[in-house]
Design a binder for these strands. Structure first.
Length: 201
DNA sequence: TCTTCGATTGTCT
DNA sequence: GACAATCGAAGAA
């Protein structure tokens, strides 16, 4: 079952936590690849000084102000693409950065995109997973709630709340407090009852 | 295993 | 002109 738009129209922290275990699917024609989301971060509005919306709306961050349930994809460090899910009320600039997925499908495609890299390092970083899944700016604004979309998110597996960890967000060290220390990074291990899937990778 | 550092370009001040 | 929601190679330990 694909996640509905209402899933994303909640507080961005709730969505970030609830996104763990969900199945992220990348489809290119007949070929698809997928993985379970294991790490995500919340970026919450113009008052959040770590959020791209902190200086108001610009052409780059405009997608964050749009409809919930769409992808906000941006380019950084001169070479990396980042995948976010737009959240909250439509018009409110908030998004969840997807930082880690556990690959479960389309391993041919992923291994080709990540040639020469150890399997355990294929998708454990925000720029790594976009490279693994072939995600670039041409998917910016894509509807994650559309079953026909080349990028979408389905229900996935259950990650018990008591196995979810939090921490400060990564890579925002020049951001002032209290935003620097907000525990808006959510992460989990792959559940042991899915070892079978784990082992075939 | 850990730490340091260069790569590389779009975006905004 | 500064810097970025990062990665991975290289070197040290």
């Amino acid at each position: 079952m694909i996640l509905s738009r209402d899933f994303y129209r909640r507080s961005v922290q709730t969505v970030a936590r609830d996104l763990l275990g969900r199945r992220l699917i990348r489809q290119m024609g007949d070929i698809s690849a997928a993985g379970y989301i294991l790490e995500a971060e919340a970026y919450d509005g113009e008052q959040d000084l770590a959020c791209h919306a902190r200086r108001g709306r610009t052409p780059r961050n405009a997608m964050m102000y749009g409809e919930a349930g769409r992808a906000y994809i941006y380019f950084t460090y001169g070479m990396h693409w980042m995948l976010n899910c737009v959240c909250g009320e439509d018009g409110y600039p908030a998004a969840v950065l997807i930082r880690t997925i556990h690959p479960i499908d389309g391993l041919d495609m992923i291994s080709k995109n990540r040639e020469g890299i150890k399997k355990s390092l294929w998708c454990n970083g925000p720029a790594k997973l976009t490279k693994a899944l072939g995600i670039t700016s041409d998917l910016n604004g894509i509807d994650l709630c559309d079953p026909l979309s080349p990028l979408r998110i389905e229900e996935g597996i259950d990650i018990p709340l008591n196995t979810i960890n939090t921490s400060a967000r990564v890579g925002i060290q020049s951001t002032p407090e209290p935003w620097l220390s907000m525990p808006w990074r959510f992460y989990a291990e792959m559940p042991v009852n899915h070892e079978e899937e784990f082992s075939r990778i």
